[in-house]
């Protein structure tokens, strides 16, 4: 074999070193860019996704759902916690899904500390009854707790963590922005992961608010606290809307299924600006009595706003979510958003 020249050896060596460097970089990038789970929240009482909903999930390669099993509310007449809106599966869910139980803060306000144990027994009994042939790897509790209910809610979560029946089940809890900012007051729940609900941050009941679901200004008050939060976080982003009506400057309630597009077509409703309307004649509207001079604020998170929300989290936090979930899946998303809108949202976290 002919002896290689020094130049050739040098070139070959350089090339090998280059390949090694490229390989190392590729492996590093692969390891740090874990694919993020794409998820939706399913918040309807009957689990029965339509063809278009299923198609949407398939197109987006959504591999996870958060399905609300039931709410737990406080019955002020019977003085006890009760489940309501319990889910029924019209068809089995063929994806990995996380059972979610929403518990109102009022339950923990009214419950005695002693009764937390029996609440836990009832809730887990119902969860297991609904699970029947399904073994979830994660269960989530959704509660907008405050410092007054921290002790009881956390006791509830501790019970779950120490329950041998769920020793292989991860526990997650929804976290709202005020719980991030004021964690010294409200505490950090004893769970494995938090699901940051990056919406409903504005002052819903204040008439001046432009969009209480998401707006940069209110979000900006909280995002700087994200990196100090000691729980790993997943993110829930909003893809929904609603309307709130006001009388004499005071909020009165939510108008069901009422958006700017609905209000644009209603008689005796005058448009004042992009999302603000005024009632010009007393009238019944879907069971609610609107009075002349009532103001209505229509709120919606369009794709641009949803993108802003998604990017803000990336910009202000080094947290790497394992799951990004959109709230919430319903057939009208298909007609309201483009597929590319959803892809852009999920891709923000690639």
């Amino acid at each position: 074999m002919a002896k290689l020249s020094n130049k050739t050896i040098w070139v070959l060596t350089s090339f090998v070193i280059f390949l090694v460097i490229v390989a190392v970089i590729a492996v590093f990038k692969y390891q740090t860019k874990q694919p993020v789970n794409k998820a939706f929240y399913y918040w309807q009482q009957t689990y029965n996704p339509s063809l278009s909903e299923n198609s949407l999930m398939d197109t987006l390669a959504v591999n996870k759902l958060y399905i609300k099993y039931f709410d737990v509310v406080w019955d002020a007449n019977l003085l006890r916690a009760q489940p309501v809106a319990t889910v029924h599966f019209n068809k089995p869910c063929n994806k990995d899904y996380v059972p979610v139980v929403y518990i109102t803060n009022e339950v923990f306000k009214n419950l005695s500390k002693k009764s937390v144990d029996s609440l836990y027994i009832n809730i887990t009994k119902l969860i297991l009854a609904i699970n029947v042939n399904y073994n979830p790897t994660e269960i989530q509790f959704d509660c907008d707790w405050t410092d007054k209910t921290t002790e009881k809610y956390f006791k509830f979560l501790h019970l779950f963590k120490s329950d041998k029946r769920f020793s292989n089940v991860n526990l997650s809890a929804t976290i709202r922005l005020h719980q991030i900012k004021y964690k010294s007051r409200t505490g950090v729940p004893p769970v494995d992961r938090g699901m940051l609900m990056f919406y409903n941050m504005g002052k819903l009941k204040q008439i001046e608010t432009t969009n209480s679901i998401f707006n940069n200004y209110d979000a900006g008050k909280y995002v700087s606290y994200l990196d100090n939060y000691p729980l790993p976080l997943d993110y829930a982003l909003p893809v929904f809307g609603w309307s709130i009506y006001f009388r004499n400057g005071k909020s009165q309630g939510i108008l069901n299924d009422t958006y700017a597009t609905t209000l644009d077509t209603m008689a005796y409703i005058k448009k004042l600006s992009t999302n603000r309307y005024m009632v010009v004649k007393d009238q019944f509207y879907r069971g609610i009595y609107l009075k002349t001079n009532d103001l209505i604020r229509a709120e919606f998170v369009d794709d641009a706003l949803a993108q802003k929300a998604a990017k803000m989290l990336v910009q202000y936090s080094s947290n790497k979510p394992q799951t990004v979930a959109l709230f919430h899946l319903n057939e009208n998303l298909i007609t309201t958003y483009e597929i590319s809108d959803f892809k852009k949202l999920f891709d923000t976290y690639r």
């Binding site: 918040w43 609300k68 109102t104 939510i254 958006y259 077509t265 319903n330």
Partner: peptide, 27 residues
């Protein structure tokens, strides 16, 4: 993005109502 009229989604509204009632009666 399209803006058609969105159809009913009762559980969202129930939950939203629960949230709202929670807000309204928070104290």
């Amino acid at each position: 993005m399209k803006f058609p009229i969105l159809k009913s989604c009762s559980i969202l509204i129930v939950s939203a109502a629960i949230v709202f009632i929670g807000y309204k009666n928070n104290a």
